[in-house]
């Protein structure tokens, strides 16, 4: 067992995702408190140039392989597992993201390593990990057993700035044997442009499952129009095909930072919070006084949205 803290670098189209810097910042704190070494693990093909943005790390381990040019669940999972096997880190931080979810479990099984998911906090010495479960309604503190553990971190849990530093640390090349791959990357499909760009709106009236039916959407549209904004939504509204994907706020939707985010009937699951927590003013309306959205809102209204929306609309 080494004293290394690994951060698995997440990058897409040549950009390092913010979750990486969040984890580097946290990793630096843990490494500093435990006399450990902070190592950024970078996978790609001809991607070593990205190391110049990983200055917060003490070292970069770089794996170059043509099959790692684009994210590939099987190839990345194998590569990360192999590097963990070679270096035996004390802790591995990976994003609780679409990519990270395809990485962490493999290494856990391959190396019999504890895996703690949905981390929203990690103690300064790395010994206690807090997971945000049940849609953000319950926190669980876990202590990993034995040496070494893998932690997947919810995006937005730590400040990204703490992990940003220019200048490349020493880069060490590692090689892995990816063997035969049954999964092949084909293409990236860009999101279609929608009728409204919700990321450019200053006012968003955002509806969640509490709206109950697409027949109730006009009520929200009217309120948005009166406020001079647009309607956005949580994921179930898009999965029900009531609104276009381009209206979705959150982890797999868009990140928004409007002057006003009015959340109507949205519970505040971590995947939604990721997309809107930085709005200037968040006002949440929900019938459930314990809804996690109230942890992130500036103002909370415990009320039936079917009573609240007409009441506010009629005053505008």
């Amino acid at each position: 067992m080494s004293n290394q803290i690994f951060v698995i670098v997440e990058h897409l189209k040549g950009n390092i995702e913010d979750i990486t810097f969040e984890m580097l910042g946290k990793g630096k704190e843990i490494a500093g408190n435990t006399g450990g070494e902070l190592v950024a693990v970078l996978l790609g093909s001809g991607a070593d140039g990205l190391a110049s943005q990983l200055g917060a790390a003490d070292k970069v381990i770089y794996v170059d392989d043509a099959n790692l040019a684009e994210f590939n669940p099987q190839a990345y999972c194998k590569a990360v597992s192999s590097v963990i096997g070679q270096y035996q880190p004390k802790m591995v931080l990976v994003g609780n993201t679409s990519m990270g979810m395809d990485i962490a479990g493999g290494a856990s099984v391959d190396h019999n390593m504890p895996y703690i998911a949905y981390a929203s906090n990690i103690s300064a010495d790395g010994s206690t990990i807090t997971s945000s479960l049940y849609g953000g309604k319950i926190n669980v503190d876990s202590t990993p057993e034995g040496d070494g553990c893998i932690v997947s971190v919810i995006a937005g849990s730590f400040p990204a700035d703490a992990g940003k530093a220019d200048g490349s640390p020493a880069v060490e090349n590692a090689s892995v044997d990816l063997g035969d791959l049954q999964v092949q990357f084909k293409q990236l499909i860009e999101p279609e442009g929608g009728d409204v760009d919700i990321t450019a709106q200053e006012i968003l009236v955002s509806v969640g499952r509490g709206i109950q039916s697409d027949e109730n959407l006009p009520m929200a549209e009217e309120l948005a129009a009166k406020l001079g904004g647009a309607v956005s939504c949580s994921r179930p509204i898009v999965d029900s095909k009531w609104l276009a994907k381009t209206r979705q706020v959150g982890k797999s939707g868009l990140k928004v930072k409007p002057k006003l985010y009015l959340a109507l009937g949205i519970s505040g699951a971590p995947e939604h919070i990721e997309g809107m927590k930085d709005a200037d003013l968040i006002i949440a309306v929900n019938t459930d006084p314990k809804a996690p959205i109230f942890d992130y809102a500036h103002y909370g209204v415990v009320q039936d949205l079917f009573d609240f929306i007409p009441a506010l609309s009629s005053k505008l």
Binding site: N112, M113, S132, G300
Partner: peptide, 30 residues
């Protein structure tokens, strides 16, 4: 590979100032 040390509810409403009253009163305050 890990044990639950503690399970608890996060402090709800820690961030939000709650607006009381009827729907009309709440809408007026908003």
């Amino acid at each position: 590979g890990s044990a639950v040390a503690k399970m608890y509810k996060p402090e709800t409403g820690a961030g939000a100032e709650m607006i009381e009253g009827s729907a009309e009163e709440q809408a007026a305050k908003v």
